[in-house]
Design a protein around this nucleic acid. Structure first.
Lengths: 372, 372
DNA sequence: TTGTAGGCGTTATCAA
DNA sequence: TTGATAACGCCTACAA
C-alpha cells in the first residue's frame, strides 16, 4: 500500500502542454468524441467521409491514443508483465529474447522487472504491475503459494517459469533439471571418472536442488561413492564457480571431474583451474548446465547440458497468451523442457558430439513434455 | 492509428471477477472513497483511527491500486519506456542491466521494446507507449528528427542513446566511437602492422560510421595506406564477422591485422580464422570494440575498446529522471562516454595492459564528457 | 449514421 | 477530518 518513495521531483503540471486527446481530434474534425472514437477503431460504423476526415485530423495532430485510459475501459492492456531474477547475463537475456519476440509478434508489450528473491521487492514489483498488464510471466525459483495469493488477484493469468512446483494455481514451465544433470554425470562417469564433484546452485533454489538430485542419482546408478566433500555450495555466479573450484583443489584427494550446476560457475571454475596451473580436461574435466552462448567460446569449449533458453521464454508467452483467452478454466498445465547433453572439449571425451536425452525411449515430436 | 491486430481472444468480460477496487475498500471500512484514497496515500490528512481501519481493510481485501487509473489523473506513471534495437546479446543485455538497476532504485518500472530499424515497428512501439510512460530511453542508431516529431509529443522527455547527433531536441548519450577506433588502430599500427583491415558495422549506423572514421584517421596519421579492399562491410553480427574474415583471406595480399567494429564480429572473425587454420595473433592480429564480457573468455582473449556498457544505461536513466523534473527547459545535454583500449592476447602485443584513452590530456574526473 | 451520457478506478477540489 | 463531485482520456450502450 502507499506509494513508492519518489526521489524525482516532477515539474509543475501544466507547465508544458504535450497531450493531444481524442477531444482535439473530434473538434478538429467537427464531430463528436464518440464518432471520432468510432472512426479510429470500428471504422465500419461510420460514414466513409467522416471516417477519413477524422483520421486525417488525427494524423495531422499526431494523435496517439492514451494507452492507460483506453485500457481502463477495455479491460485489456495488450501488455504482459515479466518478472525475472535478473535482466542481464546470458541466460536471462536469452529468455527475454524469446519472450519479447513472441509478445511482439502477438502485438503485446512487455513490462519487465527484476527481483532476485521473494520478499518486499518482488511483491512491490508485482503490485506495481496491477492494472498495467493482462498477465504475468514469472520466474522466481523461490516463489511460494503464499506469495501468490497475497500478491495476485485470484484467477489472474500467470505462467510460472522455473518455479518450484507447488499447488499454486498457475501454469508452469520447467527445465528437465534432473534428467539433464543425470545425463551429464553419467557421461562423466562413463569417461572413467570416479571422483566427480558438483558445484551446486543457490540454496533454496529449485533448479539447483533438482540438478543436485540428478547428480546424486547418476552417481548411485554408476556405483560411485558420493562423499560430502565433493558437494560444494555455490550460487550460480561465476565468482562462486571460482571459489568452489579452489576449494576442491584444497582436498587431499582431488576430484577428477567437476559438474557445475550452471555454465556461469563452470566458467568461473575454468578460470580458477587455469590460474592454478591445471589443464582442462587433461587434469580435471568440467561440465556445465544451460549451454549459454558463451559455452562454445571459452577455452576449452564447455561441455554442457543444452537448454533451448529462448524457447523457454517463447513458450511461456505462448502459454500466457492462450490463458488470456480462457481465464475461467480451472486446470493448469505443467510443461517441462527437455535437455540435450552437448559434448565439447572440456570434459575430455575423445570427440565432440551431441548426446540424445536421457530417455530417448519417450519418442517426442517436440522437446516439450506435458507433465500434467 | 487503429489498434494492433489482435490474435488473442479474450474471455467474455465479467466471466471472472478479480478486481478489488478502492470502492470495495471504502465500503469495507465504512468511509467514503475519497477518505479511503487519502488514508492510503496522504495519511497525514486523515484521523489515525480511520486511517488504520482503511489500511486494514485494504490489506484484508488484498487491495492494490490500479496503476493505469491512478496515472490517468496523476499524470505520472512511474514507468520509463526503453526502446532498444534488440534485447539480447551481451551488449544490449548490459545496457538493460544499467537501465533496470537505476530505474528500480528510483522506484520506476520499465516497459521495454525492441525495434531494429526506424520504420513501422519502431513507430508502433513508440505509439504503444503513449500514456504508459513518463519518459523514454531510446537507442536507435537510425533515429531521425522526422521520426521524432512525427511520433513523439513535442516536449516529451526522451534520452537518446547511441543515436546520430542531429538537431533533435533531446538529450543524448554517445560512445566516443571515433577516439576508440582511433586508439585501437593506432595501437595495431604501433605493433608494426601495415595492412590493417576493418570489418565495419551496419551501413547507415552512426556508431559504425564513426568507428570507420576513426580507423581512417589513425591510418592516415600513421602514414599507412588505406586500400578499399581492406574495408569490408559488416553489420555487427557474428556471422558478418565470419564472412568478412573469409573475404579478407581471399585477398592476394592478406591483411596482417583486422579491426572489427564490434566484439561480436571480432569473435566471428576469430572463428573463421581458426577454421582456416590460421593462428591469432601470430598470423593475423584481431581487435574488437565494446569489450563485452565474452571478450575476456574467447581464445585468444580479445583486445578491445572498452566501453562501460551498463554505465551507459545507468547514465541514460539518470539523465531521463532529471529531465522528468524539468520538462520545460530548453537546452539539451549531449554526453559522450570515454573508452579505454584493453590489450589482450588477440592483437599480439607482448603483454596485456590497459592503455589510457586517446586524449589523456583532457584530465577527467569521470569518463563522461559534457559535449554541449 | 451520429450524438448524448455514463462509467472504467483513481485522485483533487471544495464544501461541509 | 470527511464526503460529494468533478475530472483524467477513452469507449460504448442507447437514443436520436
Amino acid at each position: 500500500m502507499g506509494r513508492v518513495p519518489d526521489p524525482v521531483r516532477y515539474a509543475e503540471p501544466g507547465s508544458v502542454e504535450l497531450t493531444v486527446t481524442i477531444k482535439d481530434v473530434a473538434r478538429d474534425a467537427a464531430v463528436s468524441i464518440a464518432t471520432a472514437s468510432r472512426a479510429l477503431n470500428r471504422t465500419d460504423l461510420v460514414a466513409p467521409q467522416t471516417r477519413d476526415r477524422v483520421r486525417e485530423a488525427a494524423a495531422r495532430l499526431h494523435y496517439t491514443p492514451h494507452g492507460g485510459a483506453r485500457s481502463l475501459i477495455t479491460r485489456r492492456t495488450h501488455t504482459i508483465g515479466v518478472l525475472l531474477p535478473d535482466l542481464y547475463g546470458e541466460f536471462f537475456s536469452e529468455v527475454m529474447r524469446g519472450i519479447d519476440q513472441t509478445a511482439q509478434r502477438a502485438g503485446f508489450q512487455c513490462i519487465v522487472s527484476s527481483a532476485r528473491h521473494s520478499g518486499p521487492t518482488l511483491e512491490a514489483a508485482l503490485r506495481a504491475m496491477r492494472g498495467r498488464v493482462d498477465g504475468l510471466v514469472l520466474m522466481s525459483p523461490e516463489f511460494t503459494r503464499e506469495l501468490s495469493t497475497r500478491t495476485l488477484p485470484a484467477g489472474f493469468p500467470v505462467v510460472l517459469l522455473n518455479c518450484p512446483p507447488s499447488e499454486t494455481p498457475h501454469d508452469s514451465l520447467n527445465i528437465e533439471n534432473y534428467d539433464g544433470a543425470y545425463s551429464m554425470v553419467r557421461h562423466l562417469a562413463g569417461l572413467g571418472h570416479h571422483r566427480i564433484a558438483i558445484l551446486t546452485g543457490a540454496a533454496g533454489n529449485f533448479d539447483a536442488a533438482e540438478r543436485l538430485r540428478g547428480y546424486r542419482a547418476a552417481l548411485l546408478d554408476a556405483g560411485l561413492p558420493s562423499p560430502a566433500e565433493l558437494v560444494v555450495a555455490g550460487d550460480f555466479s561465476e565468482a562462486a564457480g571460482e571459489a568452489g573450484a579452489r576449494q576442491l583443489l584444497q582436498l587431499a584427494e582431488r576430484p577428477t571431474a567437476i559438474f557445475a550446476a550452471n555454465d556461469g560457475m563452470a566458467i568461473g571454475a575454468l578460470l580458477a583451474l587455469r590460474e592454478a596451473g591445471l589443464r582442462v580436461p587433461e587434469d580435471i574435466a568440467i561440465g556445465g548446465f544451460d549451454d549459454i552462448p558463451m559455452a562454445r567460446y571459452v577455452d576449452p569449449a564447455l561441455t554442457s547440458v543444452h537448454v533451448d533458453i529462448s524457447a523457454l521464454g517463447e513458450r511461456a508467452v505462448a502459454a500466457l497468451l492462450s490463458v488470456l483467452g480462457h481465464p475461467a478454466r480451472r486446470e493448469f498445465t505443467r510443461e517441462t523442457a527437455a535437455t540435450t547433453l552437448v559434448v565439447r572439449r572440456s570434459c575430455g571425451a575423445r570427440k565432440a558430439e551431441s548426446v540424445p536425452p536421457v530417455r530417448p525411449s519417450a519418442a517426442r515430436s517436440s522437446p516439450w513434455r506435458e507433465v500434467v
